[in-house]
Amino acid sequence: MSWLTVTYACLFYAATAMFVFGVGFRIYSYARTPAPLKIPTTPAPLTPAGAGFRVAREVVLFESLFKSNKWIWLFGAMFHFGLLLVLLRHLRYFTEPVWTWVVLLQPFGKYASFLMVGGLAGLWARRFLVPRIRYISTPSDHLMLVLLLGIGLSGMSMDFVSHTDIISLKEFALGLVYFDWQPLPADPPLLVHLFLVATLLAIFPISKLLHAPGVFFSPTRNQADNAREQQHVTPWAPKLEP
């Protein structure tokens, strides 16, 4: 087993562990923290199911963002939708035999990478061109975009510029999953791609990528508007004296 394979295998186990435990801990801390008062942004759905549907619309359609800024919505949607297709396409490296719908998705996933990278480029351009957004941007906001662009471009280069040995790559990936390590092809674009992905996984729980779990816990979106009908209790508040 080459040191390269060992390094990358360990890297991925470490990154995955940080991702799973880090995000898991965050979710736990959000879930554990009480929401003492009813604060849905109204008009809001009157039932919990309605509120769930509202959150789903935020996640799938970016409803509020659409209300506020069409450019950010467009670039954000391009990036996230592109990323989703690309991720689904990557399932082929982890399944054997590859599920049929993943096979059918391959051509779309391939070109979705353009959507993804285009969206990222648009979002990054706004950080320079719009003074208000330039004002609020921190170095980490830029670096996050660099990281994602790096992942996207290095991945695309293997598809559109020089093909990598995906047969051995798949063996390496499956090997990771089944704890039966196989050699990793020493292809520079692939190594860059995998390194950046591992970095992304590792920093996920300590960065603004927490918006992904966060959106499900936002009380202004996930609470139903039923404050009068149903008493909402605050766990830490003083009780009514009898």
Partner: peptide
């Protein structure tokens, strides 16, 4: 929860 989640969640989208 609002305060905790809102401190983490902002992506500086503008």
């Amino acid at each position: 929860r609002s305060f905790r989640v809102y401190m983490d969640t902002c992506v500086h989208c503008g």
